[in-house]
């Protein structure tokens, strides 16, 4: 068999598995968010549908069914092609990022080594940034095509916001890249078997988290869909499954950035001090990040647009540059 064909078949199987896991994971993430925020707000939260140990285990399915049966609405003056395409682009780019994230140490079964990432690309970190920069398209096109002023304002906000924060986001990762000397996520994870990168790059870690929140439009940077100002921003005119797709993209992005943060800064599937590496460590770390994001959502108010831009360009960017510079100087002094 053609080796390339074999690679493609293997990648196809892995992709399908990852996509299925992500889509169910997204559904239960919404349940988790509702539960966490409810507890923060002294409420009970969903506990009726398919109740298991006081948790509404079937709530996401009920939500999905409800969402599917909503009227699928296309505004009269919308650009129909792009209006339909935009949610797909949003979800597509969100899923693409998972192609390079290593989930588990390689396994050898019957002499065939399986790598637990869909593709071991030697420029994986750059690939993630590239996919991140493409994810703007879903929001921008969705906001523009709906032909609604709120949507357009949301799209404009998101373009400016994501373009600005991408710069700091990239720079915050440069420190790690310099320390580890590779762009491959697989190698970055393997290098962290004993000491995690966050020890060398604490500032880079914080900058990454802040920028990543801004990249995926979560509170306190949720300006493109600011409910109290822009109704729902770029999603205002969307309904039914198309709305659900945007929602899905948002939550998958949340999974993605917590996976990247875990992989790049917290050792990915590596346990602390090399204890029992495996996918469970990655999941635990991701859940911690996701909980923090939900916690932030439950407590913080939103920035204003101009404050957000000023914060990005005047605080985060200089900090990220300084971090890069100091890392470089230290590395040169150490003679690496």
């Amino acid at each position: 068999m053609d080796p390339l064909a074999l690679v493609i078949i293997e990648a196809l199987i892995k992709s399908i598995v990852v996509i299925i896991v992500l889509l169910t994971g997204f559904a239960y993430l919404t349940l988790m968010e509702r539960m966490v925020v409810a507890r923060i707000q002294v409420r009970v939260g969903p506990n009726r549908v398919g109740r298991v140990f006081g948790i509404a285990a079937l709530q996401p399915i009920a939500d999905a069914i409800k969402m599917i049966f909503k009227e699928d609405f296309i505004p009269a003056n919308a650009d129909k092609l792009i209006y339909v395409l935009a949610p797909g682009i949003a979800v597509g780019t969100a899923l693409l990022a998972w192609a390079v994230i290593p989930l588990n140490p390689p396994l050898t079964i019957f002499g065939y080594t399986i790598n637990f990432e869909i593709a071991n690309v030697n420029v994986a970190v750059l690939y993630l940034l590239a996919i991140g920069s493409l994810s703007i398209y879903g929001i921008v096109l969705g906001g523009w095509s709906a032909n609604n002023k709120y949507s357009l304002l949301g799209a404009l906000r998101s373009t400016a916001q994501m373009v600005s924060y991408e710069v700091s986001l990239g720079l915050s990762l440069v420190g790690v890249l310099m320390v580890s000397g590779t762009l491959s996520l697989t190698q970055i994870v393997q290098q962290q078997s004993m000491i995690w990168n966050v020890v060398w790059q604490p500032l880079g870690f914080v900058i990454y988290l802040v920028c990543a929140l801004a990249e995926i439009n979560r509170v306190p940077f949720d300006l493109p869909e600011a409910e109290t100002e822009l109704v729902a921003g770029y999603q205002t005119e969307y309904s039914s499954l198309k709305f659900a797709l945007f929602y899905m993209a948002e939550y998958i992005n949340m999974l993605t950035i917590s996976a990247i943060a875990s992989t790049v800064f917290l050792g990915g599937y590596q346990g602390p001090f090399g204890i029992l590496p495996g996918v469970h460590w990655l999941l635990i770390k991701m859940l911690i990040f996701i909980f923090i994001f939900m916690w932030i959502r439950g407590t913080l108010p939103r920035f204003r647009y101009d404050q957000l831009m000023r914060f990005g360009w005047q605080v985060l960017l200089p900090l990220a540059l300084a971090n890069t510079f100091v890392t470089a100087v230290v590395l040169v002094l150490l003679g690496k």
């Binding site: 590239a130 096109l141 373009v163």
Partner: peptide, 15 residues
């Protein structure tokens, strides 16, 4: 190519 052309330059065009 993707990051610079599609992700940065073209998005400004669209903007």
């Amino acid at each position: 190519q993707v990051m610079i052309y599609a992700g940065a330059i073209l998005i400004l065009f669209v903007f």
